[in-house]
Deep mutational scan, measured.
Amino acid sequence: KLPPGWEKRMSRSSGRVYYFNHITNASQWERPSGNSSSG
Rank of each mutant, 00 (worst) to 15 (best):
Lys1Glu: 14
Lys1Asp: 15
Lys1Ser: 14
Lys1Leu: 13
Leu2Ile: 06
Pro3Cys: 09
Pro3Lys: 02
Pro3Leu: 03
Pro3Ser: 03
Pro3Gly: 05
Pro3Gln: 03
Pro4Gly: 05
Pro4Met: 08
Pro4Thr: 07
Gly5Pro: 08
Gly5Ala: 04
Trp6Gln: 00
Glu7Phe: 05
Glu7Ile: 10
Glu7Leu: 06
Glu7Gly: 04
Glu7His: 08
Lys8Trp: 05
Lys8Asn: 02
Arg9Asp: 01
Arg9Tyr: 06
Arg9His: 07
Met10Asn: 06
Met10Gly: 03
Met10Glu: 08
Met10Asp: 04
Ser11Cys: 15
Ser11Phe: 06
Ser11Ile: 12
Arg12Ser: 10
Arg12Tyr: 07
Arg12Gln: 11
Ser13Pro: 09
Ser13Phe: 08
Ser13Cys: 15
Ser14Asp: 11
Gly15Lys: 09
Gly15Asn: 08
Arg16Ala: 08
Arg16Tyr: 05
Arg16Gln: 09
Tyr18Cys: 09
Tyr18Gly: 01
Tyr19Asp: 01
Tyr19Glu: 00
Tyr19Ile: 00
Tyr19Val: 00
Phe20Leu: 03
Asn21Ile: 01
Asn21Pro: 00
Asn21Ala: 01
Asn21Ser: 04
His22Glu: 08
His22Tyr: 15
His22Asn: 12
His22Met: 11
Ile23Phe: 11
Ile23Thr: 07
Asn25Leu: 12
Asn25Val: 03
Asn25Lys: 15
Asn25Ala: 07
Ala26Arg: 14
Ala26Asp: 09
Ala26Trp: 08
Ser27Asn: 05
Ser27Phe: 15
Gln28Val: 03
Gln28Arg: 04
Gln28Asn: 03
Trp29Ala: 06
Trp29Gly: 03
Trp29His: 06
Trp29Met: 07
Glu30Val: 05
Glu30Ser: 04
Arg31Thr: 08
Pro32Cys: 02
Ser33Trp: 09
Ser33Tyr: 09
Ser33Gln: 11
Ser33Ile: 11
Ser33Asn: 13
Ser33Asp: 13
Gly34Ser: 12
Asn35Leu: 11
Ser36Asp: 13
Ser36His: 10
Ser37Thr: 12
Ser37Phe: 09
Ser37Gly: 12
Ser37Trp: 09
Ser37Val: 12
Ser38Phe: 09
Ser38Gly: 12
Gly39Met: 11
Gly39Thr: 11
Gly39His: 11
